[in-house]
Write a protein that binds this DNA or RNA. Sequence first.
DNA 1: CGAGAAAATTTTTGATCAAGTTTGGGGCAT
DNA 2: ATGCCCCAAACTTGATCAAAAATTTTCTCG
Lengths: 239, 239
Amino acid sequence: MAGVGTPRQLDAYPDEIPQRIPVHQQVYEDLRTRILFGELAPGQPVTIQGLVEILGAGMTPVREAIRRLTSEGALEFQGNRRVTVPTPDTACIEELIFARKALEPELARRATKKATPAEINALEEIDTALDVAISLGDVGAYLHLNFEFHSKLYRIADAPILTSIVESLWLRFGPSLRVVCGRMGTQNLPDKHKETLAALRANDGEAAAIAIRDDVVQGMEQVREVLMENAQSGEMIDT
Amino acid sequence: MAGVGTPRQLDAYPDEIPQRIPVHQQVYEDLRTRILFGELAPGQPVTIQGLVEILGAGMTPVREAIRRLTSEGALEFQGNRRVTVPTPDTACIEELIFARKALEPELARRATKKATPAEINALEEIDTALDVAISLGDVGAYLHLNFEFHSKLYRIADAPILTSIVESLWLRFGPSLRVVCGRMGTQNLPDKHKETLAALRANDGEAAAIAIRDDVVQGMEQVREVLMENAQSGEMIDT
DNA sequence: CGAGAAAATTTTTGATCAAGTTTGGGGCAT
DNA sequence: ATGCCCCAAACTTGATCAAAAATTTTCTCG
């Protein structure tokens, strides 16, 4: 169906800007989003031909997207030719915590120096929407908005290399975040966004760094807890 | 004197079971090595069809390798469909210095806890070969051995995520390292490998962390200097 | 009449797809 | 449980189409 007729335009958006986004890029973004927000569960196998069918794309673009995501740690070679969404173990979580604590406070520091009032307001809007999502128990919206808050902060920091590293870390624990929410709901998910916003407004880089560090630690602690529960119950089924 | 410095030989036996390494993997490793050791200069364009001809591989595997390396920051999209070896600017070097200082000392700390005497001896052997390469002015051997020293240290640390991040940082400044050597030779390239080895032997994680941090800072300072010289002379030609 | 710029043509390169080949693994028989 | 066979999925290639760069041509103006 998707390949029939004029190959000029993909069927989704008929009258958009002629900004030809390549198929491999579209597939990459689609898959990345799905992984980041837990639409693909940890351990789930990802096949090339499966994606070819689902997405209606050719084999080469799908292949490229998978390689890219594998490179970023969002997918994992499972030995022989097989690719899955990785299931992080305790040691991985340890590493993720260390890396996030080492890098994200610096991004907050840099963001503090560069943020304009308009940008801070935009961040606050996201955080307000986030509170709504939490009170409604809307897990999908929570995950999207939480990532958007941090992602926007990184973009303000204007540090492309650090940002790309940190976002690749998000891809590694993203699938686990939905598991966390499934386990403990959205109610018990405290964050330090208010403190971060206050520090940005006060132009206090150190306070922002501390707020983000606390936010990271809190979040990752919960991932660690749920992961260890899963590991215990998983051992009874597996092996 | 490459004989001493190349313990890397993969398969000494031509008709052994070939372990079927996929072409896309081979292309990836080949290209990665070339970038890491400066065989491709910063700014140099990298074309798919060029690689297809040079490497004698199909189009799809080459494409996959390029996507992977782009993802790791070893290559860069240059606007419209074109890919080049990136030329880092001052801001990039700043970020690289920060990230390396934030992550590599921790790898040294972890390596100290895990290193066996045999592993430390292997590291020392590499460092000895490195000294030989320096005294001979063999830039290629120097670059390979220097990377091998650090890479082996990371592997001892047994932290796959941190290691993959740090190695992707190496890919970003690798091309510049050869420029550094071309500018100032191998004589004035001090390192802290002796101090690192001593700390490993003394099982002193903090000392190892400090030694590696100093090594990183020294190395990156030189990259920064050469980069700034190049930026000045480049401005006169450009525009 | 010549020089420079804009337009058209050629050429090079990137993007996508579909077909052929190989391989790992699950299922079935022993 | 073990070993063989078949199939589905991965790997690879080459062809085809589109887009951008390079080159040539042509037109206009001084």
